[in-house]
Design a protein around this nucleic acid. Structure first.
Length: 862
RNA sequence: GGGAGAUUAGCUCAGUCUGGCAGAGCACUUGCUCGACACGCAAGGGGUCACAAGUUCAAAUCUUGUAUCUCCCACCA
């Protein structure tokens, strides 16, 4: 690699293929097990920044666990994503003017499978491009045979325990999808609307009723007032006349009504409003459907002819016109309202009463709450627990049937009398229920909510319901990494289903990551045009650079602001590491031996200590899933301590000391150990570099442990660094070229190695005597070490005096604070002794430094 | 209406749990072809820690309140 430059693309593909062909991502036998299942992306989707972030986090953790000797499984797979995929295929067919009904169910499903086969590999291929270390031999799909069996099995078990039921209830109906959707799939948006006040006749007078949806009056079956409302008390029990349909309805009293809103009277349409539905039940009201499942006004006798079949919002206009004409409209005002729209279709949802399948959630939720309360399952960060509990305590039954074709068909059959049979298949059902061939059975047309199968993912992917070895070994999984947006959709339901089917938690920790945003903190969205394509970024700067740039910002729960700049910076870091490797080769290849060598020189001892403390902090951060902290630390330590300071020290040691052999050993040792820490974030680069040093695979290595050092660390290296910086600063200020060797006077005894490094790195010549001949002296000092230089030939005295005075000012400020603190009786009495000693020491140092500078000033002004 | 989070350098964020002289990266300024690296090296500039009051010898950090922003959840017709 000595003559090569860092080209990520060249090495990345090579290693991806190599690792997979050498089975490096398969779990290796060990007592300790670490398993993680991927949050399955949509099978027809392609990778976006959110995936790239999530997968990078998972891959880093997985690779670390693999290093740490765990039997490590990262199980990949995809989700059939019922509604989205079906919509996509439908849209595609539309281009050729074909509807799904033209094809029929079976042919349409064949088309979807074709589509899945065609585009299903896109996302997994893209994951491979980013170097994700999944066990591809265990890849699963929510609609593959095994998982479909699992879905049926769970449905049947739930049904048999009475936890799944079919019922006629009010649900959110999506007119475009022609399907029910669950509460979670509804997003309320603030929109401008109107509030109409309509007069309803009561005998020869009338009452006023405000509504935002006048078309529903066709289905009104009551008027409600608050029981305490003095204005209307006398009307309760009397009849009002619904305009247009001229239906007589009762005026009822119900607490739900807010006296202070509108007129204090509410029209009640049990068939088309969630609250009205409840009131309808309380008051035993008739439920009259006036809007059909197609979104049009129903074609019924009670509806005036001219309104029948009208689209719901057209009907609204027509009704407003009729009311106006009949002088029944007393007020119209602009009104901000919450409009429920379907997440997928974006159409306005219609509450409808219909027959659907539901999961009874109360009982399932209890266990799911308990395991989080007892911290068997931990949210990271912890505060997401609250969100989880909040939802769990108020959980509603889950509507799981969808009037769609693409998905797991509900394993329920009906005979001609409408009797329900639930079972694995028709044959099975006939057998167990003793139904002869003459009786015709129909399977339920509906499919299950996609999230139903996702809820089983942690165990269905491992082979359940069979008692497989994988299931036994890898369940419960160790960790779930996911976004907060699907805590309810997915996380909560996995816990419920895990507890139900496995009687055990599905995962131990839940690491919640944030959203990838743009550099200004805005959500990435197509409409804003601020999206970035992870594959494009990886092609431009390398997968390793992309991964590191995401990882560096990914602390638990935090959003990840992102800019291509970050990836470019990571690429530069990769380049730095690449060149550092070349440096290590250049300085250590010759005369290098693998044997462990005793380390004596302070510079080497220092870098080993630095490595050890970095390792400790790094491990601690990772334990707490603070991946960002860990990698930021590594980035800084490698770049500034190892590659800058230590490499300079090493040059001197190798060429100018008797520690050459030991230094070669340390130089290579800490570099290679550091590569292991970096590997999970930048696997390709580090594997490539490793292969230039060793014949083994880096991925097969063990995680570093602290390097044992007999000597304790001294602070002399820090003093040396400080002095070098000061001398460099002096050069910069006076534009003294690096080529000029400055003469430095020193008295007292500093060790030889110290002086050698000082001379080499600061480009000075040390003269070990008192400086007697000069009037203009500059003093450099670090703690108890001070050096002098004859300065008259370089310096501008005024400039230097200004600079030194400024410095004295700063130091005196600090000294004053320190003095005041020490003179403060309360401080002395209250603070602990250690702190007081530290403060005294600090004051001493400051005083000494100030004296030195004062002496320098005196010298300069003579 | 209920809940969660945020506010520290131009930008993105550490630091707050456990009080003790404000940190990093990027960006910026200046100098530098010194054999790993100009995707670099070196030296710099830059902050009333949102605001207010309190506790304390001492507050970015603890307490209370205020302001602004983000995000969830919720049926006011």
């Amino acid at each position: 690699m000595q003559n090569e430059t860092y080209e990520p693309l060249r090495i990345e593909k090579k290693w991806q293929e190599n690792w997979i062909s050498q089975n490096k991502f398969l779990p290796k036998e060990s007592e300790k097990v670490f398993s993680i299942v991927i949050p399955p992306p949509n099978v027809t989707g392609s990778l976006h920044m959110g995936h790239a972030l999530e997968h990078s986090i998972i891959d880093v953790i997985t690779r670390i666990k693999r290093f740490q000797g765990y039997k490590t499984l990262w199980l990949p797979g995809t989700d059939h994503a019922g509604i989205i995929t079906q919509l996509l295929v439908e849209k595609n067919l539309e281009k050729d003017g074909i509807s799904k009904y033209d094809l029929g169910r079976e042919n349409f499903l064949n088309k979807v499978w074709d589509w899945k086969e065609e585009s299903g590999n896109t996302i997994t291929t893209q994951m491979k491009t980013l170097g994700m270390s999944c066990d591809w031999s265990r890849e699963r799909f929510t609609m593959d045979e095994g998982l479909s069996e699992a879905v049926k099995k769970v449905f049947i078990e739930l049904y048999e325990k009475g936890l799944v039921y079919k019922g006629s209830r009010m649900v959110n109906w999506d007119i475009k999808l022609q399907s029910a959707v669950s509460d979670l799939e509804v997003s309320s948006t603030n929109e401008k609307g109107k509030l109409w006040t309509i007069k309803y006749s009561v005998d020869d007078t009338f009452i006023e009723i405000a509504t935002t949806r006048p078309e529903t009056l066709l289905g009104d079956t009551a008027i409600a007032v608050n029981p305490n409302d003095e204005r209307y008390k006398h009307l309760v029990g009397r009849k009002a006349l619904v305009p247009i349909v001229n239906r007589e309805v009762e005026i009822v009293a119900d607490d739900y009504v807010d006296q202070d809103f509108g007129s204090g009277c509410v029209k009640i349409t049990p068939a088309h409003d969630f609250n009205d539905y409840e009131i309808g039940i309380r008051h035993n009201l008739e439920s009259i459907q006036c809007i059909g499942f197609d979104g049009n006004i129903v074609n019924e006798e009670f509806i005036p002819k001219e309104l029948r079949g009208l689209e719901r919002f057209e009907a609204r206009k027509a009704i407003i016109k009729q009311l106006t004409d009949q002088n029944k409209l007393s007020n119209i005002e602009d009104y901000d309202l919450q409009i429920p729209r379907g997440d997928r279709s974006k159409t306005i949802l219609e509450p409808m009463v219909s027959e659907q399948w539901f999961v009874k959630t109360k009982q399932l939720a209890e266990k799911a709450i308990q395991v989080v309360e007892s911290e068997e399952i931990k949210f990271v960060p912890k505060n997401w627990e609250k969100t989880y509990f909040e939802w769990m305590y108020n959980i509603q039954d889950w509507c799981i049937s969808r009037q769609q074709w693409w998905g797991h068909r509900i394993p329920a059959w009906y005979d001609n009398n409408g009797k329900i049979y639930v079972g694995l298949n028709e044959v099975e059902i006939r057998k167990s229920n003793k139904i002869d061939e003459d009786t015709i059975l129909y399977q339920d047309e509906d499919v299950l909510d996609t999230w139903f199968s996702s809820a089983l993912w942690p165990f269905s992917t491992l082979g359940w319901p069979d008692k497989t070895k994988d299931l036994e070994e890898f369940y419960p999984t160790s960790l779930l990494v996911t976004g907060f947006d699907i805590i309810f959709f997915w996380v909560a339901r996995m816990i419920m289903m895990g507890m139900f089917s496995m009687e055990s938690i599905p995962f131990k920790d839940i690491l919640i990551h944030g959203l990838v945003r743009d550099s200004q903190g805005r959500k990435m969205s197509k409409s804003l045009g601020n999206t970035l394509d992870p594959l494009e970024l990886s092609e431009k700067h390398g997968a390793d650079a992309l991964r590191l740039s995401l990882i560096e910002k990914a602390n638990p729960g935090q959003d990840v602001p992102f800019d291509e700049e970050w990836t470019i910076a990571s690429k530069k870091f990769g380049n730095k590491v690449w060149n550092a490797a070349k440096f290590v080769h250049l300085y250590s290849d010759e005369e290098f031996s693998e044997e462990v060598i005793e380390v004596n020189s302070p510079e080497n001892i220092w870098i080993l200590h630095t490595f050890n403390s970095t390792l400790t902090q790094f491990n601690e951060s990772i334990e707490n899933y603070k991946i960002s902290d860990a990698y930021k630390l590594l980035y800084n330590i490698l770049w500034s301590e190892q590659f800058d300071w230590y490499f300079e020290f090493a040059k001197t040691l190798i060429s100018k000391s008797t520690h050459s052999k030991e230094t070669k050993y340390v130089l290579r040792k800490i570099f290679l150990e550091s590569l292991k820490l970096l590997n999970p974030a930048m696997p390709h680069l580090t594997e490539e570099i490793w292969s230039s040093f060793k014949k083994t695979y880096l991925i097969d290595e063990e995680w570093p442990v602290e390097i044992s050092i007999t000597d304790s660390e001294s602070n002399q290296i820090e003093q040396l660094k400080e002095l070098i910086s000061q001398i460099r600063n002096f050069r910069t200020n006076y534009k003294i070229s690096n080529k000029i060797i400055l003469e430095i006077y020193i008295t007292g005894n500093l060790p030889d190695w110290f002086l050698v490094q000082l001379q080499e790195i600061a480009k000075v010549k040390v003269i070990n005597s008192k400086n007697s001949n000069s009037s203009s002296k500059i003093v450099f000092s670090a703690l108890n070490i001070s050096l002098e230089i004859n300065a008259e030939e370089y310096i501008d005295i005024d400039f230097e005096l200004t600079r030194l005075n400024k410095k004295i000012n700063e130091l005196e400020k600090s000294r004053n604070i320190s003095e005041q603190r020490l003179q403060n009786v309360n401080f002395i009495n209250n603070a602990n002794q250690e702190l007081i000693d530290k403060e005294k020491n600090n004051l001493e140092n400051l005083t000494e430094e100030i004296e030195l500078i004062k002496a320098t000033i005196k010298n300069l002004t003579i």
